[in-house]
Nucleic acid binder design. Sequence first.
DNA 1: ACCTGAACACCGTTCAAGT
DNA 2: ACCTGAACACCGTTCAAGT
Lengths: 221, 221
Amino acid sequence: MKNCPVRRLIQSKQGYHHGDLRNALVSAGLKLLEQEGHSEFTLRDLARRVGVSAAAPYAHFADKRALLAAIAAAGFIRLRAALEAAIRSDSNLADRFLHLGSAYVRFGMDHPALYKLMFASEELAAQHGEYLELQAAGEAAFGALTALLEQMQRRGLLRAGDPEADGLSVWAHVHGLTSLIITGCLACVGEPAPQPAEVVSLSLQLLLNGLRGPARAEQIA
Amino acid sequence: MKNCPVRRLIQSKQGYHHGDLRNALVSAGLKLLEQEGHSEFTLRDLARRVGVSAAAPYAHFADKRALLAAIAAAGFIRLRAALEAAIRSDSNLADRFLHLGSAYVRFGMDHPALYKLMFASEELAAQHGEYLELQAAGEAAFGALTALLEQMQRRGLLRAGDPEADGLSVWAHVHGLTSLIITGCLACVGEPAPQPAEVVSLSLQLLLNGLRGPARAEQIA
DNA sequence: ACCTGAACACCGTTCAAGT
DNA sequence: ACCTGAACACCGTTCAAGT
């Protein structure tokens, strides 16, 4: 993005050292998160890797959190792409639902440090009004889910309901699965340790089953 | 715990300044987490509040993470108590399930910083073999859930299944709800922002509905 | 406009030394 | 056994000064 000629001119004028430090910092941060398992890195180290002084990032980001938010936004864009790819599969709608859920969890398992950062940063985005880019990226990823749910409801594959409200339940479920798996909590309980893939599969089936039934089950006295 | 006379003797000998610095640090940390919204505090600040030098904690904890793990373990013990109190209500079993889920989410909403720390520390506990106290506290809290599920299955209120596997699904669901709520992600999506209590109520009903149905839904071609 | 170098106020952690 | 004081190697951030 931002390939407009004006920007190219500015870049070709060349900030005499780097050209495009902003993007360099973001992609270096992404790479660091992929390599290292933990989601914390220092701004100084990142600047060092990019070959720039410790103060240089402050010309492009207000503070460390702003840089983290930019990286998290890139993560949400990738997540959305992964989810839409999973939905585009040519199978039936119910399978698409299951594939969507699996793809969500797999994204977290494949990029645990990035995933953790994404939700740590979403917290900042929610508290402060800033980080609009991050917020928009997050909502777009959520939209991929609600669109599918609405389609399934229209075709009678799910009980009628508010797609957005159901979407929140589904999101909470897959987010919880992802979180427990990548923090290792799932491996902590049970003898022997449960297989993530099986837990996810059974769990999504359970959720889908609930979405087929009536919204409010009859009270049992 | 650890009220054995031997320990009392040691305490009465008095480390000439504090007596029981270990517990003092843990409870000061707990108090700090309740007051401040964020889950990060510095070891130096904690030592300052307790009235001790910055190096003093190292006589009781290997490093900062070990202290955080001890605080997290205390959090899991409180969580378990909250869950068991919710189950003890005299209503029917299905309502107990809903109360249990609500109590879980409410615990997170009431102590957001502590809740985040608990799962950040569980990660360390899972990776390293250490922090046995934390691990045990976490598993005990999980046990309160599986016990209820087993009881409901026996009475035919839920479809037959492995209570531990179903427990993981339920745990993932309520953990996801809690996480999205206390990070503010839930408030980010939807117009107007959804009410946490309603989302939780609808979500738990959905989950319960899924647990009543067949474990494996028939494939729809 | 973009970057550097040096500085500031902090960290977590170590270690000799005190009681 | 438990704690202090001083030190070490770091942080994030600011700011004058350079190009």
